[in-house]
Amino acid sequence: MHFAIFIINSHGSLVYDNTALSDKIKIKSNDALRLAGTFHTMHSISSQITPESAEEEKFIAGTHLRDGIQTIESDSFKLHCYQVLTGIKFLLVSDVSTPETEMHHMLAEVYQIYGDFVSKNPFYEQDMPIRMTKFDKAIEKLFMPSYY
C-alpha cells in the first residue's frame, strides 16, 4: 500500500505532494514544504559522505548526483527516493511490506507521467509547484487502477 508521493525540484523545494493515495497520512502543506527541504538537505549531506568509488569517478554526466539516501525504513513505513539525472527527486511513502523494487518501479512510472504531463505543458513554468488536473488524474490512475 502506498501512502504519499512528493516531488522535490533540483533546488530542494517541494513542487508536488499527494497524500490522498490513502487516508493514513495527514500533513499540513507548510509541514510538507519543510519536510521536503529537510530531506533535500539530508540527501545532499548523505551523498557528500558517500565514499568515492573508482567506478563512480569515471562518470562525467551526473557525477554531482552521487547516490545519497535511497530508502528510509521504519517500523511503520518505508520511504523510497528516486533521484533522476536532472536533479529532481521523486519520493514515495509506502507500508513496510512493499518491496523496494516495486516502489522504484512506481516512481519510474511517475517520472514518465511527469515527462508527459508536466514538462510538455507549455503553461508550466519550470521549478514551480505542479497544479494540473491531468497530472493528478494520471497519478490517481497509476496508483488506484481499480477506480478506473
Binding site: 562525467i60 557525477t63 533522476v84 539525472l85 519510474a108 514518465q112 514538462s119
Partner: peptide, 23 residues
C-alpha cells in the same frame, strides 16, 4: 530541450554516461 530531457530520460531509461563519447 530543457523540457524534453526529462521525457527522454524517463522513457529511454538511460543512466549516467561515462564520458562525452557515450553522450
Amino acid at each position: 530541450g530543457n523540457r524534453l530531457i526529462d521525457e527522454f530520460l524517463s522513457k529511454s531509461r538511460k543512466t549516467a554516461c561515462k564520458d562525452f563519447r557515450e553522450i
